[in-house]
Amino acid sequence: MRLWQRRAILLFPYAWLLLFFLAPFVIVVKISLSQTAIAQPPYVPVLDVSAGWAGLEGFFSALSLDAYRLLVSDPIYLLSYLKSLTVAAVSTVILLVVGYPIAYGVARSPRHWQPLLVMAVVLPFWTSFLIRVYAWINILQRDGLLNDILMRLHIIAAPQAWLASDTAIYIGMVYSYLPFMVLPLYATLEKIDMTLLEAASDLGCTPLRAFWRVTFPLSVPGITAGVLLCFIPIVGEFVIPDLLGSSESLMIGQTLWTEFFANRDWPVASAIAVTLLGILVAPIMLYERLQRRQLEMFE
């Protein structure tokens, strides 16, 4: 391959990132430093290139950190962030606890069954995400399927309010994100050499001990991948808490939506988005570092 061809191939992902991530991000950062205005677009300043150097100077002097100051001063934003992180953390733990046995079961089932079982895990993706969440509304509402079943089984006497609660959010999150947890776990578990477990057994481990001393440590890369694949999008999740949750405490995605569409406060909405990215970069960097360390270990 010629040099320019190789360069062109490398250029493509960078061009993509520049065009669809970095450029919009710079615009969002810029908006977060602006002031609301009853105008089109609804903020000032707007860069006016025709005014020349003076215009540029005026533009930069008009930028301010007011939106960020608001984020710090009004507790509703902090509470939203905390709510999001809590929901994401608890959901991820539940996902791991539910997803690990599923992934393990699939990985240990007869080889010719495995594609079918993986398919079964992925199958819900074939219907629209929104329809699946709406279906949960149906199941969880007062005269819904869940109350009906529980009452028929005499577990509860009167219908319970499932909808518009944190329980409903967790149900929706775990249901929707399960494949993101199961698939990376399955991928690592499936690769583990079964003779390693025989060796552990030969060296005196009961099956349970062999799991904790061999299978579990070898599945850590899958756990890390699954946790991040679930945690990061759940922090910013909007649809599930909006449809299934209560309006009392909002997740950060909902707060952002309110600022943007209800209050038309683009600078604050942008500041929320920029801050959220800052918060999420930490676990992403941690993941990168873990991966690099793993690579070093295998060098």
């Binding site: 050499d193 390693l196 025989e198 030969d202």
Partner: peptide
Amino acid sequence: NMMFQNYALF
């Protein structure tokens, strides 16, 4: 104890 053909080292 057994020594495995592919060694089965952890």
